[in-house]
Amino acid sequence: MPSLSRLAPSYRLQHLSAVVLVGLQCLIAVTGAVVRVTSSGLGCPTWPRCTASSLVPIAHSGIDPANTWIEFGNRMLSGVVGVVTLIVFLLAVLAKPRRNRQVMLAGVMLLGVVAEAVIGGITVLTGLSWWIVCVHFLVSPALVWLSIVHLRTIDEGDAKPRWLLPLPLRGLLVALSVVFTVLLIAGTLVTAAGPHGGDARSPRLPLPVASLTQLHGDLLVAFLAMLVALGFALRAFSATRQMWRRYWTLLAVTLIQGLIGFVQYLLSVPMALVVVHVIGAVVVTASTAALWCAARDRGPRLGAPAPEAEKLDAQQV
């Protein structure tokens, strides 16, 4: 009988599973947007069953079969996300040596996926009330962020975290992340008041869309201004190459996201652009999380080689 040490997962397996989880967390946010713009939120009108009498889609009065299958497909993808998250958690528990931070992050993500499923059920049972739809969406970027941090944890050591930025720049990075969070919340409010609520009968947020859109746009301008300021500060500080790569990626995807949002508004929020805009929001979330991770160092993971490029970066700090 093999010993427990021989059952310990390899670094490659842990890394691959973490990458797959990042992709799935991003994908489930996008498929949720597809459900909303196609008015498929009540394609399965009950939960956890699809209908009162069936766990899987069956023909039922007043609902287009396409809407039923879109909603059911999203639920099935949620199940896949749950299974992969459970696997990631088990791999963290079985790892030798076991790393408490990795186990904790994987455990929190597992609880988050369970919470997301429960919130999704409440969303259906309340007839897609706008406030619970907002909460349901906001859990997704939080899980995307955690999955990026978890992936970083696998690739780094367990030394005490060392900031690669001076205190004022840390404060700017924290403020940037807070503004981004508020920006996401404002975006969900725009959707809550707009035409894409998941079903034509779902209650909408009784506020003017134009005012909410203006707020959302102002927050984007503030986020971009802080991002540009951070760029100048990083240049003065001589940041590492990894941090610069993450910074330029974040700046590029944020500019593209802003352009998509502007065109979306001019064209009266077409369905396809709503989905593209959600894809952009997920990418910006992942890029912001990646920049956050690059701002701290915990040393190399156990047994990892130390590339010359990383040594040069460390000497620049």
Rank of each mutant, 00 (worst) to 15 (best):
P45I: 11
C134D: 15
E71K: 05
S54L: 06
L86D: 01
V108F: 05
I132R: 00
S39M: 15
W47Q: 05
D64C: 11
T51Q: 04
V83H: 02
G120M: 01
G73R: 00
V84M: 01
R49N: 12
I119H: 03
I87C: 08
T85F: 00
P57N: 09
L105N: 10
R98I: 02
P45C: 12
T126N: 05
Q102C: 05
G121C: 07
R99S: 10
L86P: 01
V114N: 03
S39Q: 12
T38V: 01
A59M: 12
G79P: 10
L105Q: 13
A29T: 15
K96D: 13
I63Y: 10
W131Q: 14
W47D: 05
G62N: 07
I87L: 14
S39V: 02
W69Q: 09
L110W: 12
C50M: 05
G41R: 05
G79R: 10
K96Y: 09
V83I: 14
S61Q: 14
G82S: 04
V114I: 14
C44T: 08
I122E: 00
V34M: 15
A66E: 11
P48Y: 09
V84Q: 02
L111F: 13
W47T: 11
M76K: 00
S78Q: 11
T126W: 04
W47G: 03
C44W: 01
V35K: 06
G82E: 00
P45H: 06
D64W: 03
V81P: 01
L86K: 03
G41K: 10
G79E: 06
C134M: 15
V108S: 03
V37F: 12
A59I: 14
F89P: 04
R99W: 09
V84W: 02
P57E: 08
I132M: 06
T38W: 05
M109N: 08
L125N: 13
L94V: 02
R49M: 15
V37N: 13
L90G: 00
S40L: 07
N74M: 03
R98H: 12
G121M: 03
L77S: 02
T38G: 10
V118C: 01
Q102W: 12
P48M: 09
S61G: 13
P97H: 06
G112F: 08
S40A: 12
S78I: 09
P97T: 10
S78G: 15
G32C: 05
L125Y: 04
A33Q: 10
